[in-house]
């Protein structure tokens, strides 16, 4: 069969509109996920008793649950349980954010724990209050080690965002499948979608590799 470039040009405007929604869904999911992750991380590091156990449970539960299950569950079960129907967009963002938060929590914890104990002791020994110890000494060093895994997580969230097409969010992959079904140009349209995903994620993964190399060569 022939690969028809004209089909690619025809579907491109539609797909690019989808790229926009893919980016919006992913960024929202990452922002919400980072926020929840911060709370969960605080709970695992500072919490006691029930709070601590809940946060640990959150991390292990949502790292094991398939995103697809979560997406379907939120979209179809929430209306039955809560008597409230979230939009497909909201369901999508939350469904992607919840597991992302579990990873964020672990990334934050690992980043903070990677700061050597002596650093904190030196800051405390100077009489800095805990807020300054966190702001001046822990955060700047922790964030540096967090950047590569956060970029990595971002690529995963973007990839997972294709899953929310199943509940009708008109992001890149949804538009590609609908267009392909209507025109039967599966090869051209789905290949185009694949290339667009690749172009979207490529810069991030290159960045990850650069940062990781820099971290490795940085001597203490």
């Amino acid at each position: 069969m022939a690969f028809d470039m004209r089909v690619v040009w025809d579907c491109l405007p539609l797909l690019l509109g989808g790229v926009w929604l893919t980016v919006v869904v992913s960024l929202c999911a990452l922002a919400v996920g980072a926020l929840i992750g911060l709370v969960v991380c605080a709970g695992t590091m500072l919490g006691r008793g029930v709070v601590y156990r809940l946060c640990i449970a959150y991390v292990s539960l949502f790292r094991t649950l398939p995103e697809t299950v979560l997406i379907f569950w939120l979209y179809y079960c929430i209306p039955l349980v809560l008597d409230h129907r979230p939009t497909a967009f909201h369901s999508a963002v939350i469904a992607l954010a919840i597991p992302a938060a579990a990873y964020f929590a672990e990334i934050f914890r690992a980043g903070i724990e990677s700061v050597p104990r002596g650093q904190v002791e030196a800051a405390r020994a100077m009489g800095l209050s805990p807020v300054w110890v966190l702001w001046d000494v822990i955060a700047p060093q922790a964030i540096r080690t967090m950047i590569p895994p956060i970029l990595g997580l971002s690529t995963i969230v973007i990839k997972n965002s294709a899953l929310v097409s199943v509940i009708g969010v008109e992001e890149l992959f949804y538009r590609a499948t609908v267009y392909a079904n209507q025109t039967f140009h599966y090869v051209e349209v789905l290949t185009s979608a694949a290339v667009l995903f690749f172009l979207l994620i490529l810069p991030l993964s290159v960045l990850v590799q650069l940062r990781e190399r820099r971290l490795l060569t940085r001597s203490r």
Binding site: P116, G118, Q119, E121, A122, A123, L128, S129, D136, Q141
Partner: peptide, 25 residues
């Protein structure tokens, strides 16, 4: 306090390392 392993802050200049305590505390 001066530590065995120095514990200087690697992400700050030498000047900032010394100036931090007086600024913050």
């Amino acid at each position: 306090m001066v530590f065995q392993s120095f514990n200087l802050f690697p992400h700050m200049t030498v000047r900032r390392n010394v100036a931090l305590g007086p600024i913050r505390a």
